[in-house]
Design a binder for these strands. Structure first.
Lengths: 179, 179
DNA sequence: ACCTGAACACCGTTCAAGT
DNA sequence: ACCTGAACACCGTTCAAGT
């Protein structure tokens, strides 16, 4: 039997973590997160065995956002939108998400492999739909796969790189996708 | 007046740091580095005010390696070698360097901006020579600059990415350079 | 001038006591 | 079952004493 306050606490912890992580980065202490969430440290550790786990969970929540957008983009493509343009929007959204959320990406770097694998699993089908559409119209280099896009996402520049350079990176990335 | 044992100590510290950093990554303690270098912790902090500074100095030493290779590649290009092939070798060498030296790149991520700026300053001329040669032969997309190559280097996949994916990344990166 | 190493501070993590 | 928060452990950093 799960206690009601337990699930409430878990939610409060994740909220506080996302909030603190996005503003001040990875240097927030566990005590601070706990107090902002209105729980004791022990409770925090009961829900997440380690700080890495806590951050992992937070990043996973954020990546869910991306999957939602992936699905929306796939729908637009199915409705006739330009697949390459949609891919550009997706890549931009991700880099901006990583950039706005300060050290979320920096924090995620260490566990990127795991988070991206999850993202890939759940967003794979959507991404494949976009790729198929693009290839069918001859807009995509024939050997491009979903793994390639995951690779690009994994190597997307973080917020340490200035915005202009991030935009330029996007341009180069798209260039490597087109035939 | 600089004491002889001081410069010797500095050297011993940098050697030990590079050795320990490449095998075990960023989690080596300062005490451990000190004992491996045969000095006391205080000495370590006299030479490098903070751990980040120590790692920065070590990474800077390693990047000097890359500048040397850059110069060699520029010479080969001047002697008639294929500029694109040389660029490929350079990018591969860098990613491999980052991959072999375990957390050197991971450790450097935070201070990448600074290290890369140094690298850029000192290697810029060499890189420009390669770019000019490639463009003159029509092998390079006309808008590619040294900044673009620095951007690619900065976003090169680290050792968390498997070797096959790293090779694939290289292929995609080169694709974005060619016309 | 520089080196030494015990001591400090900070922060992730644990655990005995409470409800 | 879960929460609490004082206590522990670890590691980056400092500083008084030594040469």
């Amino acid at each position: 039997m799960v206690r009601a306050d337990s699930v409430r606490n878990r939610c409060k912890i994740l909220d506080a973590t996302r909030r603190l992580l996005s503003t001040r980065g990875n240097q927030v202490g566990m005590d601070e997160i706990a107090s902002h969430a209105g729980v004791a440290v022990g409770t925090l550790y009961r829900h997440f065995p380690t700080k890495a786990d806590l951050i992992d969970a937070t990043v996973a929540e954020l990546s869910q956002d991306l999957v939602t957008r992936l699905a929306a983009a796939a729908d637009r493509v199915a409705a006739g939108a330009d697949p390459i343009a949609e891919l550009g929007v997706l890549l931009r959204e991700f880099t901006e998400m990583a950039a706005n959320d300060r050290a979320v990406k920096a924090a995620a770097t260490g566990l990127a492999a795991e988070s991206l694998r999850q993202l890939e699993e759940r967003g794979l089908a959507q991404l494949q739909r976009i790729i198929d559409a693009a290839r069918a119209r001859g807009l995509l280099h024939p050997d491009i796969t979903t793994a390639d896009l995951a690779l690009l996402v994994a190597t997307a520049p973080s917020d340490t790189v200035p915005a202009v350079a991030r935009e330029r990176w996007l341009q180069l990335a798209l260039r490597s996708l087109t035939p």
